[in-house]
């Protein structure tokens, strides 16, 4: 499914002060594409993702979806940085949540949940509660829950940012493996350049606030991606390109905050 984001604005006020989060952000996401959204912190990446998810209204502009593959099921499902698992539900009932809300019969949704629990490597933890699991395992549950909901598009908001470096690397590989099976359209917000290059088909770079899409870099690395690619000259070239583009925005953001301090 394709996503078309055109001229999206977002303004809100924080303690009476108007904040201009997004300013005419435009972006085309292709069908079955893994798009990584990279930008300096506070640039409105998460806000844009929530607008695409329909969880936040845009102040202006429009988000549209084209080319539905299946008749039923939701258009988008989020995977959150802080997992957002329901603490009172066991793993299998967390994973089955979306199907339960849509009235899928119990037997069917439990079988479906089991399938995705197995796929993310959590066999044996079906009856556990989220707090009994490590961060990496909790994010696996969140991924299984999103996939079980069978969305056309997966929206991922820095899903690995809260994990330690080693777990993050393991999860990146897992994510690539799982994405390869389902080939869903993915919009993946991250602040890690390496992650954006390793995972993405294209990298959309956002400007400092007010955020807009500054540049889209096609990732020319072949698929399937492997960790070995992290050391190739091709990878470094792409990462450098992204870094230089981002660096300008960090300078803008840093300048702006210094200005704010002197006021």
């Amino acid at each position: 499914m394709r996503i078309s984001v055109s001229n999206v604005d977002k303004r809100f006020s924080v303690r009476g002060r108007e904040v201009n989060a997004l300013n005419k952000a435009s972006l085309e996401v292709r069908d079955a594409e893994f798009l990584t959204l990279l930008g300096p912190s506070g640039c409105g990446k998460s806000t844009l993702l929530q607008i695409i998810a329909g969880l936040e209204p845009a102040t202006g502009g429009k988000v549209s979806f084209e080319g539905r593959r299946t008749a039923s099921g939701p258009v988008t499902t989020m995977v959150w940085q802080r997992y957002a698992l329901f603490p009172w539900r066991t793993i299998k009932h967390n994973v089955a949540f979306g199907c339960e809300m849509r009235g899928m019969p119990r037997g069917e949704r439990m079988a479906r949940a089991q399938h995705f629990i197995e796929n993310v490597g959590l066999i044996g933890f079906e009856e556990a509660f989220p707090h009994e699991l490590s961060g990496g395992m909790q994010q696996r549950v969140a991924l299984a829950r999103a996939l079980c909901n069978d969305p056309e598009i997966l929206l991922m908001d820095e899903p690995l940012a809260a994990l330690d470096a080693q777990t993050r690397t393991v999860m990146q590989v897992e994510l690539l493996r799982i994405w390869d099976q389902y080939k869903k359209t993915v919009v993946y917000v991250t602040h890690s350049i390496d992650e954006a290059v390793l995972l993405g088909d294209r990298i959309a770079i956002m400007s400092a606030r007010p955020g807009r899409i500054k540049e889209v870099i096609p990732v020319t690395l072949p698929r399937p991606r492997t960790l070995d690619m992290l050391t190739t000259p091709e990878f470094h070239k792409l990462a450098d390109h992204a870094w230089n583009s981002i660096k300008e925005e960090f300078d803008v953001a840093y300048g702006a905050s210094k200005e704010g301090q002197s006021q």
Partner: peptide, 8 residues
């Protein structure tokens, strides 16, 4: 938000 997003 997560519940709403999942269709509740």
């Amino acid at each position: 938000k997560a519940a709403e997003d999942l269709g509740a």
